[in-house]
Computed example of a mutant assay.
Amino acid sequence: MIFQRLGVFPNTDSRRVHPTLNPKGRLQADTVPPSWKPFVQLSRINMPSGAFLTFWPCAWGLLASAYRAEIPLLTTLYQLPAFFVGSVVLRSIACSWNYVCDKDFDVQVKRTEHRPLAAGRVSVKATLIFTIVQAATFVAIPVYPLFKRIMYWPQVWLRCYSTFLGKLLVTSFFYVDKQSVLKSLISWTIYYDTIYATIDVKDDLRIGLKSTAVLFGSWIRPILRLLCIGFIALLIATGILNEQSFGYYGISVLPTTLLLFWEIMTWDQSNPQSAFIRFDQNGRYVGIIVACGLAIDYVLKLQT
């Protein structure tokens, strides 16, 4: 594949192992004092893909709104770091709280049995205090882990929650069509999170946890294709409604389309590392590709 030859995307048999897939449970947190390691692992700061997946939709909304309303560039540049910090904190709170809620399940799942709380490297009390301290700097503690007990679609809550927070922060200039943005983000979130959930699907079935990977079953690949098509179609619809220029379609939409369908075609459903790589690519590449097109459109519009 040309992307692999250029070194842009890794091979599905890459030797880079996701820390939680490492059977020995060694996390890449060796640069901090030993007493800090469990808390770095609780927050997953050393695994930034999730924080990027939280941040990029906020950045997209901000850039699209700034483009439509011709917000001064300096104002937008002030807002983006605030969104990033908020995304990191939100994701850290969600991860810590998730460990508390899922500790009894984590010990039964191969991928998660080495998490700090499940492995006994930190107590529930210490984790709760750590979570509350983080939450004190933000507005709420997400209830995402609890939704896995009652519904197959926990990602919908996750995306609605973050979209609501993003809208709340930029209410004064949130001019883009909210329905198309929300639907596109829900489609994208279910897509990449379903691929990630296949890592644990056997354990989830055994212990009775719900996920879209469990729900879709043997239909998972065609449904993921439909989600990709829906996401791309809604990106196009959002661009039309927001009156984006050709830069958005050429820089954001087209490369994203090629990347997502390449992911589906090359995904090895039987290989957990293949699933993680595709999850990681969405955090690292899809977000920045869409943001680049929006940013270029925005800057060019300000110059005209």
Rank of each mutant, 00 (worst) to 15 (best):
Y248C: 02
L258S: 12
P222Y: 07
F173P: 03
L169V: 07
L215N: 05
I229Y: 11
S187E: 13
G239K: 00
L165C: 12
C160P: 00
E243K: 01
L165A: 03
L227H: 06
I207L: 15
I229D: 09
F174D: 00
K178H: 14
L185T: 14
N242L: 11
K178C: 02
L258W: 07
I220L: 13
L241A: 11
L165R: 03
C160A: 12
L259C: 14
L260E: 09
S172L: 02
I232L: 11
S180G: 02
D177P: 05
S162E: 07
V181E: 01
Q179H: 06
S184N: 08
G250A: 13
T256A: 09
I186M: 07
V201D: 08
E263S: 06
I190Y: 04
I264S: 01
R221V: 15
Q179P: 01
L215H: 10
L185F: 14
V176A: 04
L165E: 06
S187Q: 14
A237F: 01
Y196P: 01
V170W: 05
K210A: 13
D203T: 09
K167M: 04
F246S: 08
R221D: 10
A237H: 05
T257E: 09
Y191Q: 08
E263D: 11
K202C: 09
S211I: 12
A237R: 03
V170M: 11
A237N: 06
V253Y: 06
L259D: 12
L227V: 07
P222S: 13
L259V: 13
L165D: 04
L224S: 01
W188F: 15
L182H: 02
E263T: 02
D200E: 15
A233N: 07
I229T: 11
P222D: 07
L168T: 15
I236H: 03
S211P: 13
W262C: 03
L182M: 12
L226N: 06
I251Y: 12
L234D: 00
L226P: 03
A233W: 02
F174K: 00
E243D: 07
V176Q: 01
D177N: 12
E263V: 11
A197F: 08
L254Y: 08
V214A: 07
L241V: 03
N242G: 07
S187Y: 14
T189G: 04
